[in-house]
């Protein structure tokens, strides 16, 4: 049977100051993915290796890691794509390490708590009616499985302490903003508190999304434009000002 070498980052911060890559030899089966290889190591070589996975089907977004330094889901990366060459598996670099391949991603729920929730318009007649075409935009964002690979790849998050909430959370806000019956505008939150201005649209997030959500094109850029239109457009400023004056009179 063919074998492949998987080089796994091992680090227990409780007892070590530095981590290291450890090589494991794993027999290759047809159609095997990186997660299968990791499960083999877990079952047959070292059950104490820390690794997070759940659905094994690309639906839950638990098994995020960096495979050959590219943010990827272990369950969707096929071993045969490496043609027998050594594969490295390391934890997501943008998050604090818990142990081995497991990182602490809890800050994401703290951010999600800050995004204003779905707030339906008042007085909508029940049962609600919406047309399919109007829900399609929001639906694209709702495919997000919260794997946080987009957060991991984002250089603004990795290299700068800017306060930028990150691509996942822009997608979340956009999914609510583009709900046909929602009444809020979250672009103000995103562009002030959310630090969206720090994103310089390099589209890295979009390139690693396992759900192929066009994060930059369909969520980030429209939310940036919304803010510009609402707060910086000179004509809109004049209209707003005259409306306010009108109200005063």
């Amino acid at each position: 049977m063919d074998k492949i070498t998987i080089s796994v980052y091992r680090h227990n911060p409780e007892i070590e100051t530095k981590g290291r890559f450890v090589d494991y030899e794993v027999p290759v089966e047809e159609g095997m993915v990186v997660l299968d290889a990791m499960k083999y190591i877990e079952r047959h070589i070292d059950p104490s290796m820390s690794i997070r996975w759940n659905c094994m089907a690309g639906k839950c977004g638990s098994c995020s890691a960096e495979i050959n330094h590219k943010p990827s889901l272990m369950c969707k990366t096929r071993i045969d794509s490496f043609r027998g060459k050594k594969v490295t598996v390391s934890p997501m670099g943008a998050f604090p390490l818990v142990k081995d391949l497991v990182t602490d991603v809890s800050e994401n729920w703290d951010i999600l708590r800050r995004i204003p929730p779905f707030t339906p318009k008042k007085g909508i007649e029940k049962p609600w009616r919406m047309s399919q075409i109007d829900i399609e935009r929001s639906k694209e964002f709702k495919k997000c499985i919260e794997c946080f690979l987009c957060q991991d790849v984002c250089h603004v998050i990795r290299e700068h302490k800017s306060g930028y909430v990150g691509p996942r959370h822009v997608v979340k806000a956009a999914s609510l903003d583009m709900h046909p019956l929602d009444s809020l505008n979250r672009s103000e939150f995103l562009n002030s508190e959310g630090g969206l201005g720090f994103c310089n649209i390099t589209k890295c997030c979009q390139s690693v999304c396992p759900e192929e959500i066009r994060i930059t094109d369909n969520a980030i850029i429209p939310e940036k434009e919304r803010a510009v239109n609402a707060f910086y457009d000179p004509i809109a400023i004049i209209i707003r000002r005259s409306r306010k004056e009108g109200e005063r009179k």
Partner: peptide, 20 residues
């Protein structure tokens, strides 16, 4: 189901806009 929709879930729609 209707309550879930009011919580923000987006179900597929019928041609007249109701839940498919």
């Amino acid at each position: 189901v209707r309550e879930l929709e009011e919580y923000g879930a987006l179900f597929d729609r019928t041609p007249d806009g109701r839940i498919m």
